[in-house]
Write a protein that binds this DNA or RNA. Sequence first.
DNA 1: TGAAATAGTACTAATCTCGTCCTATATAGA
DNA 2: TCTATATAGGACGAGATTAGTACTATTTCA
Lengths: 162, 162
Amino acid sequence: MIRLGKLTDYGLVLMTCIARTQGQTASLHTARDLALVSRLPLPTVSKVLKELLQSGLLVSHRGIKGGYSLARDAHEISLAEIVSALEGPIALTECSTDISGLCDLERCCPIKSNQQIISQIVKGALEKVMLSDLVQPLQLTAIKDANGKLVPTIGYVSGRMQ
Amino acid sequence: MIRLGKLTDYGLVLMTCIARTQGQTASLHTARDLALVSRLPLPTVSKVLKELLQSGLLVSHRGIKGGYSLARDAHEISLAEIVSALEGPIALTECSTDISGLCDLERCCPIKSNQQIISQIVKGALEKVMLSDLVQPLQLTAIKDANGKLVPTIGYVSGRMQ
DNA sequence: TGAAATAGTACTAATCTCGTCCTATATAGA
DNA sequence: TCTATATAGGACGAGATTAGTACTATTTCA
């Protein structure tokens, strides 16, 4: 399995919860409310929200009646941004980052340039999916044809799936 | 960072090393030779090769003058297969697999179906790149345009990059 | 028959992540 | 102005996972 940390998973759930009621009366969510809705422990929720805040994906209001809300419209936040905020730069291996000195093979690594490209491919795939796509669930059958190949269009379903 | 295990990284290097000389006189590679070429410790190389063998990506010959070679042509082995062989099914989170009972939120998880789709997108991206593409290095500028968007064609460069 | 290579299993140490706790700071309302 | 409530930030320990190693069995060529 390509490992995406649990905290990143939580982040996707929390961002979806916030985005779902964005624009409604209750556009400000406290960490406590989000913990209840998402059924996640409060300290953990608080931690994730803080990281999303520091990455500029959320804005916060302190004090009584404080809380968190999206920094931008859900249509303008990609999964790549959320993942990057919680996992760091999107790369499949350390060799794919710009940081040097992490790998003994660096000077003559036979596939370094290719790894960077592989990471770009994955990154590009995540950049195509927006937070709003998670609120309005994607249609599974729409993006995968009978041969298992991806088709460019992304469809929606009318109601909540599952 | 989306975590891909070191062993998977090694696997990509080793598969590339083997594919590079496929069809030539020395089409059979011992674990020892591959360890020297890849600069990786022999026991680790041996371990990775065994896993690739069990997944059917390599064939082996025992005894003196034994070694490993590709089970199929490099053009017919995708990165998705190599990654799957060493990481298990390609999924970004445990919730994305078909195994149930791993997550408390399972019954009412708000984004489960979407996570499966996200995994499909990443998987699809890896299926498009073949082992032969790693031997014949991909052209970075060819798959990414000025806007950072991916373009479908994949180009090659004449010599080794880097 | 012996040398060399793979096959399989088990184990240990290190690393990393997750979840939690504590204290400081800011804000709205009484 | 004071208090309750919420975020901000840092630190820490338990747990799980992975990486790497070691050992033994099996196979094959000379």
